[in-house]
Design a protein around this nucleic acid. Structure first.
Lengths: 262, 262
DNA sequence: TAGTGGTCTAGACCACTGG
DNA sequence: CAGTGGTCTAGACCACTAA
């Protein structure tokens, strides 16, 4: 069970707090194989006795390792070893959905057509809900109609069709209209980016040369309960749009966390 | 200073732990304006006395609010109010750089040309370091040479030119070769995605029809000290490649955190 | 130096899980 | 039911910051 060690030692030097020393020792023991991944760590009370520290100190150590993703706690069960190495991963932070779009704010939608579609396109694998989805086609522009950003086709979940008549009038993005009116919150956005050739019709709408390239984005806006609220397909002339992103290395716990408060 | 409230009340019902009730109360007071953003909260001992709970409970409450990004603690100073609302933001998690690429693993690079470039392309805004960057052109394939994924051009920071001769032999991605050999760690990757037309030469290399569309990715691999280790430009025939991503809403603290351990 | 948050103890009871 | 982690108390001393 790995070598004992009395944390009471080293009364001077070693300014490191005991819970960190203990955390290190636990990591050492996990890596030595004493507690393989998936196994349960000894109970807090046992660790407390074994290392001669209070349960508080043990819990602080375990808390740190839990934050690092090495352990997980389960009331009534125990503390499970989740990993031997604290995992690094890359993360992209996006402040808001507008940042995800990468448009400067203040764009508006000019509606060309309002129709209904049985199911939002073949390549969008949504369940056929048996209802037609309100569908809007148009182009997005900034400030004046001359400043065209992209052609777009929007599919609205019929459950939210109340907002459809208002689309194109205000400046709120559609997902914001849904969030406001129905108190729904977008919890996830899926995006697919691909390259396409501008068809003559689309080229005309965005005032670009037909036959040149465009960047197509297909986005699914998903609310709670995994309900798809809205699907959009946009095509940007490639000389006007480039998709930029930045990911950073981070040593991190699971996506869990969250907090109290509202 | 907002209404008092005795947390000792409600001995039954209200199974919520006291530290969460206290956290909520503190949030209420912050939002009421009692403690504006930037101000210091009363000391832990004072809160402990005021609410009739132990300092431990106060600290747990503050810990939660700190995790939520509403407060920050500063030893010797106090607890500062950082925000009145816990901020939501969207996050994309990427397990590894390979996930960022979205290639199935096990791809290899076939080298066509080895040259040197004064500065990695005009559209790559790097400082001209006064040295030529080793440059490699080729295509990436999976398993057999018939399975071509993309054409690619790679610029290596001359500081790492030792690895250049080995490129194309192993299966390690170049950034892994750098990480291993120089103990450098990629801490950030920047990516720009745009749409292009396949030139006849590139089309030939990836076995696609010239004149069709391709998705171009420009990536900068950045290590510690913000040093650019490597720049790559890849062009994927668009019928073979689509860039998919998913962002999730998260209520979150700053990118800080990290933990002890190694 | 006075006051803050950081660490730590030795207790206690509760909520939850599994057999 | 026994055993786990979750919450909580009433103390204590230390490290740090600012005046």
């Amino acid at each position: 069970m790995a070598s004992e060690l009395d944390l009471e030692e080293l009364p001077f030097e070693a300014k490191e707090p005991r819970y960190l020393m203990l955390a290190r020792e636990i990591v050492r023991e996990i890596r030595s194989g004493a507690y393989p991944v998936g196994a349960l760590l000894p109970a807090e009370s046992e660790l407390s006795a074994r290392f001669g520290v209070s349960r508080f100190t043990v819990r602080e150590a375990i808390r740190k390792l839990t934050e690092a993703g090495l352990l997980s706690r389960h009331q009534g069960v125990g503390t499970r070893v989740e990993a031997a190495e604290s995992q690094a991963r890359y993360v992209q932070y996006i402040g808001s959905i507008e940042d995800f779009w990468q448009y400067v704010a203040d764009t508006r939608l000019h509606v060309l057509k309002r129709t209904k579609t049985r199911t939002p396109l073949a390549n969008v694998d949504l369940p056929d809900l048996g209802e037609d989805w309100p569908t809007i086609e148009g182009y997005r522009y900034r400030k004046t109609l001359a400043n065209r950003i992209c052609w777009t086709r929007i599919f609205i979940n019929p459950f939210y069709s109340d907002i459809v008549p208002e689309i194109g009038s205000g400046t709120d993005p559609i997902y914001v209209m849904i969030e406001k009116r129905y108190k729904e919150k977008i919890t996830e956005v899926q995006q697919q980016i691909s390259a396409v050739i501008l068809s003559p019709e689309i080229a005309k709408h965005v005032k670009a040369k037909p036959g040149t390239t465009g960047l197509q984005t297909l986005r699914r806006y998903i609310g709670s309960n995994n309900r798809v609220l809205e699907v959009t397909i946009s095509i940007h002339p490639s000389d006007r749009f480039r998709y930029d992103q930045k990911i950073r290395l981070e040593y991190v716990r699971g996506p869990a966390a969250a907090g109290a408060t509202g």
